[in-house]
Design a protein around this nucleic acid. Structure first.
Length: 991
RNA sequence: GCUCAAGUGGCGGAAUUGGUAGACGCGUCGGAUUCAAAAUCCGAUUCUUCGGAGUGCGGGUUCGAUUCCCGCCUUGAGUACCA
C-alpha cells in the first residue's frame, strides 16, 4: 500500500471537522491550556508559505498539550477590518464586507488544508457586528472611567463626580489633561451641564482632543508618518499639511507605569520587552519653573538632571511653543518668525534625519534663574520637540551634548559646574562620576545627593517638584475611514454622548461612496441614515435630525487595533450575546498560556492589548491584568527571488551603403556577467556573432564593426520559472513574462546561454508579490501533502529566526514520511506485529521520547524533526516491526504530522483519534550503557577514540589510555605533563 | 547614535550545564536497479601541501572555548535630537 497523502489528509481533515475533535470545553477536570496565534488580516492574496509558520508551531504545541492531558483552547479568527478591503471598495464599489467574506473563505480553505487543530466553533471576526458590539461596549466603559492615581486604578466616572460635588477638584489626583482649571464644589454645581461635560472629558480614559495630524487634502484623509515620502503622500504624491483635528484619544499614558512594571511578570522575549520599555520611555527628574523677566509668564521645563541647575546658561523652547510669540522682543521678531516658518516647512522626518545642522534663534527674552536670579537668555531651537515633556528645556551645555553643540554654535557661554571635568571638547554627561562645583549649596555633592537636595530647595521656593516623565503618548483612536468599528456616540450641542449599551451594536451604515465627502468629512459623512433617535433608540435618517431628540452620530471609525486589543478574551466565550464573555469562562481560561506572533506588533497591538486588559481588570471584568503569560515571536520566512540579465547589445558597422547601426536585446544567464557587473568576453563574442547573424541582410562581418556597446540590466524572474538547480525553465519564463500572448506570433526576446542550462541568480528577501518570489502552500499540499509542509516549515530552522524558503528541500522531509510509512505498511498491508521489541529499538524509542519532549518544551521544533529522521533511520535499519515501539512513535510524531499519524494509528486498530492518546513516558532504563567510546584528546584536540567500560575508575582509564599504542604515537616519546580524565565524557592529555 | 538579535561547509542548519565541531536534510559527485526516465536503494561530500588547520576578526580565561570575558568588524530588526 502506497503512502497516498492526498487521500489520507482529506480523510482526516473531514473526520476532525465532523467529530469536532478539537472543540474545547469551558468546563473540565483537566488543567487548562490556552494556545493563541495572532489572528490574520484576510488579505486578497491569500496565504503564502511564510504565514503558517507560527500557526504550525502553535498547533504542534497545542496538540502536544492535549497528549499531555490538558484541556486545550486553540482558537482562530480574523482581524477583518482593514484598509485593503476599503481601498478595493473605493476602486470598484464592492462593499468591503463582501471582499472580506471572500478573502476569509480563501483563508479558511487554505488553513483547513494544512490540518490545524483549531476549535473553529469559537471563530471571531472583528468586523462582525456581534463582535464589535463588545468593542463598542469597551469603548463606553473607557469613556465612563477616570484614572485615580491614589488608588492606582481606573474608577467609574461617577466616583469623580461625587468628589467634585463634595469638594471640587483641588485634591483629585488623577491622570488628566494638562490644563485643568481648579474649581470648588460650589463652582462645580454652578457649571452648566455642557461645562461639566467639558471638564469630565478632561478626565475620561477616552476623550476628545485636538490632535495635530498629517492631513492630505487631496486624499481627504490623515496619513501615518510612513505614508509620507518627502513631504507628499506616498500614494499619488499629494501635498500633506500639519493640521489640528478633534479626535478621540485613549489615555494610555495613565497606565505607563503599570505597563512598565507588568513586563517583569510576563515571560516575553527580552527584545520585545526592551522595545516596550523604550517606547514607554520612563525618565525620572524634576519639573522646574523659570520666571520670564518682564512678563507674568513662566517657562516650565522637565529635566532629568536638576542637579546641574547652576550650569544653565540658556533656555531653549520648541519653535511651536505657545510662549514664543508672547515673549519675543520686537527687535528679534523678524528673525524668530523667519526661523519658525523655516522649521514648519521641514517635515518631522527631515528634522529627525538631519541631526548635524544646528539651527535656532534668540527670542530677546530672558528667564530668571530660580536660585541666582541671574537672567538667562531664551532661545528657540528645533532640537527641542514640542511633543515631549513641556516643549522646553533648561540648557546645561557643560552636561548635555546637544546643549553643548548649540551653545558652541551660537557662542553662548559654557560654565563648568563639574569638579575636575574637562569640557573643552565635549560635554561631561557621566552621572556616576559627577561631583558638583560652582553651584552654591550643591558644591561637593554627587549626582544622587545633589538631585535630592535641589528638588527639596525648589519645592521650598515653589518653583519645582520631583517628577517622572514618560515618552508614551496618548493614542489617537479616530480614523477617517469606512471599514472600521463605528463609535457608539452621538453629539448633543457638540458634546459626545454614549449610546446605552443595551442598544449595541451600532452597525456600520451603508454608503454610496467609500471616499471622504466633498466637505472633507470621513466616509461615514456619505451615509444618509446616520442619526440617533434618543426616544426610539434607533439609527434613523439624517433628514430627521432636530437636535432635540434626534442627533448626528460620530463620523469617524475606530482604528485597526481596537478589535485586536481584546479578542483573546472573546475566544473564551465567543458566542455569548449577554456579555463579552461569561465570568465562568473568563475565570476558567483566565489568560493565554502561549501566544505566538510576529515581532512587528511589539509596540502597537501588544502594548494596546496590555493597556485594555489592565483597564478591564480594574473594572473587574477580567480576572488577570496581563493577558498572555508567554509570548514567542516567530521569525519571517524569506523568499528567494530569482533574476537573470537582459543584455542590450548595440553595434555600429560599415556596410557598402554607409554606416549602419543595430541594437538588440537578449536574456543572458547570471554567469554572463562578471563581478563588476559587465558582460564577460565570452558573452560579448556570442552576442556579437548573434547580432551579425540576425542582420545577415547587411552582409557584415565582425571586421566591419566600428563601435559596440553592451549594457546589462537585472530582470526579475518568477520563482515558478526556476527549477531546483537554479536553472531557468525557459518556456515557463516566457509564459509568465508574456502572458495571454501567442508566443509563436509575438517576437519574444531570446534567451541565450553558452551552456546547456540557463543559470538564474538568487537573492534572499522578503516574500512579496511584487518580488515574484511568493510560494503558495496550496501547490505544496497537492504535491507533497500538508504533513510534509508542516514538517518542512519546522525543519527550516529555529522558530524565532529569519530564514529563506527553498521549495527544493522539501523532498527531504517528504522522503522521511515515506520511510515512516514503510516502517508500518508494505505491499501486503500492515506489517506491525506483537513481537517483543529489541533492546536497540527500545533505546531508539526512548531517546527519541526524551529529545522530542525537551525540544517541544523549548520550542526547538527544527531539532525534533531531525530526531524523528534519526529514529526512523535507526528503526528501519533494525527492521523493527514491534507494535510496542511503533505505536508510541506515532504519538510522538502526531503533533508534527497529524494526518499520517491518525491514519497509521487507525490502521493499528484504534477507533479514537490519536489526539486522545497519552504522550509516551520516557524510561531511562532503556538508555543505560555499559561502555563509552571515549574521545582521546591531546592538548584539547581529539585524535582518536577508545571504547572503555563506564564503570572503570579514573586511574584505570588513565592507565588504559596511556598504554594505548596510538597514545605513544601521538606523544612521540614525550612524557605527558598532565592527564585529565572526566569519566563518561573525555580524556585529555597535556604535554 | 542608541537598543536588541545574529555571524559555523556550496545551502538550511546541529552541537540544551565549557568536553569527539559540521548531527539531520538539501545540493553535488560516484554506484546499484531500469531499454530509458521517474521513483527507490548504497557510498562519498569543511579545507588541506596529509603534518595539520578550522565556528566573522584580534586578544584573554581554561587541561579543553561555537559556548565564558574584553575589544573590534559585518549583517538584520526596532527606535530616534526624549531634555
Amino acid at each position: 500500500m502506497k503512502y497516498d497523502f492526498n487521500q489520507i489528509e482529506k480523510k482526516w481533515q473531514e473526520y476532525w471537522a465532523k467529530n469536532q475533535t478539537f472543540k474545547a470545553e469551558n468546563h473540565s477536570d483537566k488543567p487548562k491550556y490556552y494556545v493563541l496565534d495572532m489572528f490574520p488580516y484576510p488579505s486578497g492574496a491569500g496565504l503564502h508559505v511564510g504565514h503558517p509558520l507560527g500557526y504550525i508551531a502553535s498547533d504542534i504545541y497545542a496538540r502536544y498539550k492535549r497528549h499531555q492531558g490538558f484541556n486545550v483552547l486553540h482558537p482562530q479568527g480574523y482581524d477583518s477590518f482593514g484598509l485593503p478591503a476599503e481601498q478595493y471598495a473605493i476602486q470598484t464599489g464592492q462593499h468591503p464586507a463582501i471582499t472580506t467574506e471572500t478573502n476569509i473563505a480563501t483563508y479558511r480553505r487554505q488553513l483547513d488544508q494544512i490540518g490545524f487543530s483549531f476549535d473553529w466553533s469559537r471563530e471571531v471576526r472583528t468586523s462582525d457586528p456581534s463582535y464589535y458590539k463588545w468593542t463598542q461596549w469597551i469603548f463606553i466603559q473607557l469613556f465612563n472611567s477616570w484614572y485615580n492615581n491614589d488608588a492606582e486604578k481606573a474608577e467609574d466616572i461617577s466616583t469623580l463626580i461625587k468628589i467634585f460635588e463634595a469638594e471640587g477638584n483641588a485634591n483629585v489626583n488623577a491622570v488628566c489633561d494638562d490644563a485643568v482649571e481648579t474649581f470648588t464644589a460650589e463652582e462645580w454645581k454652578a457649571f452648566s451641564s455642557k461645562e461639566q461635560q467639558e471638564i469630565l472629558l478632561q478626565y475620561r480614559l477616552t476623550y476628545l482632543a485636538e490632535t495635530e495630524v498629517n492631513w492630505c487634502p487631496a486624499l481627504g484623509t490623515v496619513l501615518a508618518n510612513d505614508e509620507i515620502v518627502n513631504g507628499v503622500s506616498e500614494r499619488g504624491g499629494h501635498p500633506v499639511v500639519r493640521k489640528k483635528m478633534t479626535q478621540w484619544s485613549m489615555r494610555i499614558s495613565a497606565y505607563a507605569e503599570r505597563l512598565l512594571q507588568g513586563l517583569e511578570k510576563i515571560d516575553w522575549t527580552d527584545s520585545l520587552k526592551e522595545s516596550q520599555r523604550n517606547w514607554i520611555g520612563k525618565s525620572v527628574g524634576a519639573a522646574v519653573t523659570f520666571n520670564v523677566k518682564d512678563h507674568d509668564d513662566v517657562i516650565e521645563v522637565f529635566t532629568t538632571r536638576p542637579d546641574t541647575i547652576f550650569g544653565v546658561s540658556f533656555m531653549t523652547l520648541a519653535p511651536e511653543h505657545d510662549l514664543v510669540s508672547k515673549i519675543t522682543t520686537p527687535e528679534q521678531k523678524a528673525e524668530v518668525e523667519a526661523y519658525i516658518e523655516a522649521t514648519a516647512k521641514r517635515s518631522e522626518r527631515e528634522r529627525m534625519a538631519d541631526v548635524k545642522t544646528i539651527t535656532g534663534a534668540f527670542t530677546g527674552a530672558y528667564a530668571e534663574h530660580p536660585f541666582t536670579k541671574e537672567p538667562i537668555p531664551v532661545w528657540i531651537g528645533d532640537y527641542v520637540l514640542a511633543g515631549y515633556g513641556t516643549g522646553a528645556v533648561m540648557s546645561v551645555p557643560c552636561g548635555d551634548q546637544r546643549d553643548y553643540d548649540f551653545a558652541k554654535h551660537f557662542n553662548i557661554e559654557i560654565p563648568n559646574i563639574f569638579e575636575g571635568a574637562d569640557i573643552s571638547e565635549e560635554a561631561f554627561a557621566d552621572k556616576d562620576k559627577t561631583i558638583i562645583a560652582n553651584s552654591d549649596f550643591l558644591n561637593g555633592l554627587n549626582y544622587k545627593k545633589a538631585t535630592k537636595r535641589v528638588i527639596f530647595e525648589l519645592e521650598q521656593l515653589g518653583q519645582g517638584v520631583g517628577k517622572t516623565n514618560y515618552r508614551l503618548r496618548d493614542a489617537v483612536f479616530s480614523r477617517q475611514r469606512y471599514w472600521g468599528e463605528p463609535f457608539p456616540v452621538y453629539y448633543v450641542d457638540g458634546m459626545p454622548q454614549m449610546i446605552d449599551a443595551a442598544h449595541l451594536p451600532i452597525q456600520l451604515p451603508e454608503v454610496e461612496k467609500y471616499l471622504p465627502t466633498e466637505t472633507g468629512e470621513p466616509p461615514l459623512g456619505n451615509a444618509t441614515v446616520w442619526a440617533w433617535n434618543t426616544e426610539t433608540n434607533e439609527v434613523v435618517s439624517n433628514d430627521l435630525i432636530d437636535n432635540n431628540t434626534i442627533f448626528p452620530l460620530e463620523l469617524n471609525t475606530m482604528p485597526g487595533w481596537a478589535g485586536s486589543s481584546w479578542y483573546f478574551n472573546r475566544y473564551m466565550d465567543s458566542t455569548n450575546n449577554e456579555a463579552f464573555a461569561s465570568q465562568e469562562a473568563l475565570n476558567y481560561w483566565k489568560d493565554v498560556d502561549l501566544y505566538i506572533g510576529g515581532s512587528e506588533h511589539a509596540t502597537g497591538h501588544l502594548l494596546y492589548a496590555r493597556f485594555w486588559q489592565k483597564f478591564l481588570f480594574d473594572k473587574g471584568v477580567v480576572p488577570v491584568d496581563e493577558f498572555a503569560k508567554k509570548l514567542i515571536n516567530q521569525g519571517m520566512i524569506l523568499g528567494t527571488s530569482g533574476y537573470i540579465n537582459m543584455a542590450i547589445c548595440a553595434i555600429k558597422f560599415n556596410t557598402p551603403e554607409g554606416t549602419g547601426s543595430k541594437s538588440t536585446n537578449y536574456y543572458v544567464p547570471i554567469d554572463a556577467v562578471n563581478q563588476k557587473g559587465e558582460l564577460t568576453e565570452e558573452y560579448k563574442s556570442i552576442l556579437r556573432k548573434k547580432n551579425i547573424q540576425d542582420y545577415e541582410y547587411y552582409k557584415v562581418s565582425e571586421n566591419d564593426i566600428i563601435e559596440e556597446t553592451f549594457v546589462v540590466n537585472r530582470t526579475p524572474v518568477h520563482v515558478d520559472a526556476i527549477d531546483s538547480s537554479n536553472n531557468l525553465i525557459i518556456d515557463e519564463f516566457y509564459k509568465w513574462k508574456y502572458p495571454n500572448q501567442d508566443l509563436q506570433k509575438i517576437k519574444v526576446i531570446e534567451c541565450i546561454s553558452s551552456d546547456e542550462v540557463f543559470k538564474v541568480g538568487r537573492e534572499v528577501e522578503k516574500m512579496s508579490k511584487s518580488k515574484y518570489n511568493v510560494v503558495n502552500p496550496d501547490q505544496i499540499c497537492i504535491d507533497y501533502g500538508a504533513d510534509s509542509l508542516r514538517l518542512y516549515e519546522m525543519f527550516l530552522g529555529p522558530l524565532e529566526q529569519y530564514k529563506p524558503w527553498n521549495t527544493a528541500g522539501i523532498t527531504g522531509v517528504h522522503g522521511f514520511l515515506k520511510k515512516l510509512w514503510k516502517l508500518y505498511v508494505d505491499d501486503n498491508g500492515l506489517k506491525v506485529n506483537d513481537s517483543e521489541p529489541s533492546a536497540d529499538s527500545l533505546k531508539t524509542l526512548h531517546k527519541t521520547i526524551k529529545k522530542v519532549q525537551e525540544d517541544i518544551e523549548n520550542f526547538s521544533f527544527n531539532t525534533s524533526v531531525s530526531t524523528f529522521m534519526i529514529a526512523v533511520n535507526e528503526l528501519t535499519a533494525q527492521k523493527c516491526s514491534s507494535k510496542a515501539v511503533l505505536e508510541q512513535l506515532l504519538v510522538l510524531i502526531s503533533p508534527y504530522a497529524p494526518h499520517i499519524a491518525e491514519e497509521l494509528w487507525s490502521q493499528l486498530g484504534h477507533n479514537e483519534s490519536i489526539s486522545t492518546a497519552a504522550f509516551p513516558k520516557f524510561d531511562k532504563s532503556h538508555l543505560v550503557e555499559s561502555s563509552k567510546n571515549y574521545p582521546i584528546s591531546f592538548n584539547g584536540k581529539m585524535r582518536f577514540t577508545l571504547e572503555l567500560p563506564l564503570d572503570m575508575s579514573k586511574e584505570d582509564i588513565e592507565k588504559a589510555v596511556l598504554a594505548h599504542e596510538k597514545t605513544q604515537e601521538q606523544l612521540q616519546g614525550r612524557t605527558p605533563k598532565k592527564v585529565i580524565v572526566v569519566p563518561g565524557k573525555i580524556v585529555n592529555i597535556v604535554g
